[in-house]
Measured scan of single mutants.
Amino acid sequence: TFELKGKVGKVVKIAEDHYLVESEGDKWIAYSDEKLSLGDRVMVVDVDGLKLKVKRIP
């Protein structure tokens, strides 16, 4: 299986209740415990079905 946990991506869209993150050339629906901005670099900390939980990284 394709393992996304630990992968790095970038926030490419902000929606009302989720983010769109591009990682490894694909776009994924993501959510975070912190507020993210367009262009933020993020790391995948968990995968919930087809949704990614991400956190901001420097």
Rank of each mutant, 00 (worst) to 15 (best):
E16K: 11
V42M: 01
I57G: 04
D33C: 14
V21H: 00
Y19P: 00
G9A: 14
I29G: 07
H18T: 12
G49V: 08
R41Q: 10
K55A: 13
K7N: 04
K53P: 00
K10G: 06
G9K: 01
A15W: 12
L36S: 00
S23D: 04
R56K: 06
S32A: 11
K53R: 14
E24F: 03
L20E: 07
Y31Q: 10
V45N: 04
K51M: 13
K7Q: 05
L50H: 08
G49C: 08
S32P: 01
R56D: 02
L20N: 05
K5W: 15
K53F: 14
K35G: 07
F2E: 15
D33P: 13
V11S: 00
D46N: 03
V45I: 09
D26W: 15
V11R: 00
G25H: 04
I57A: 08
I14P: 02
V42C: 10
A30R: 00
V45D: 10
V12L: 13
K10T: 06
D48E: 09
V21Q: 01
L20M: 08
D48K: 06
L52C: 03
V21E: 00
V11M: 02
D40G: 05
K51F: 14
L38C: 12
L50P: 05
L38F: 12
E3D: 03
V44I: 14
V11E: 00
E16I: 13
S37W: 12
S32V: 03
L50G: 08
D46Q: 03
L38M: 10
I14F: 11
V54D: 00
K5M: 15
P58W: 10
K7L: 06
A30P: 00
L38N: 09
D33M: 13
V8D: 08
F2M: 15
D40T: 13
D33R: 13
F2T: 15
K13L: 10
E3F: 03
D26G: 10
V54C: 05
K7D: 03
E16Y: 11
L52N: 02
L52K: 01
G39A: 09
S32G: 09
V45E: 14
P58T: 10
V11D: 00
V8G: 03
W28N: 02
V54E: 00
K27L: 11
L20C: 09
L36G: 00
E3I: 01
L38S: 07
L36R: 00
A15T: 10
V44N: 02
V47K: 03
R41I: 10
D48T: 12
A15E: 07
T1Y: 15
K53L: 10
L38I: 09
Y31D: 12
G49E: 06
R41V: 09
K10Y: 10
V12N: 05
D26C: 14
A30C: 14
Y31E: 12
G25N: 05
V45M: 13
D46L: 03
P58Y: 13
S23P: 01
L36D: 00
I29C: 12
S23W: 01
G9P: 01
T1E: 15
I57L: 10
V21N: 01
K7I: 03
V44A: 03
T1A: 15
A30L: 02
S32L: 02
K7W: 03
D33W: 14
G6S: 01
K7C: 13
K55P: 00
V21W: 15
K35E: 06
V42G: 00
E3G: 01
E24M: 05
F2R: 15
H18N: 09
V21M: 14
A30Y: 00
I57V: 07
L20T: 10
D40L: 09
K13R: 13
L4Q: 15
E34A: 07
V45W: 10
V8C: 11
F2I: 15
L20V: 08
S23I: 15
V45Y: 08
Y31C: 10
W28D: 01
V42H: 00
G9N: 01
V8E: 14
K35C: 11
V8F: 04
T1W: 15
P58L: 12
D17V: 10
E3P: 15
L52R: 01
K27D: 07
H18C: 11
E24H: 03
E34H: 08
T1P: 15
V47A: 04
W28V: 03
F2G: 15
I14R: 08
K27E: 07
S23M: 15
G39I: 03
D33S: 13
R41K: 06
P58Q: 10
V44Y: 04
K5C: 15
E16P: 11
L36A: 02
I14A: 10
V11Q: 00
S37A: 12
K10A: 09
L36W: 01
V42A: 05
K51A: 14
K27G: 05
S32N: 04
I57R: 03
L52S: 02
V44F: 15
E34I: 05
Y31G: 06
E22H: 10
G39P: 01
E3L: 02
K53S: 08
S37Q: 08
L52D: 01
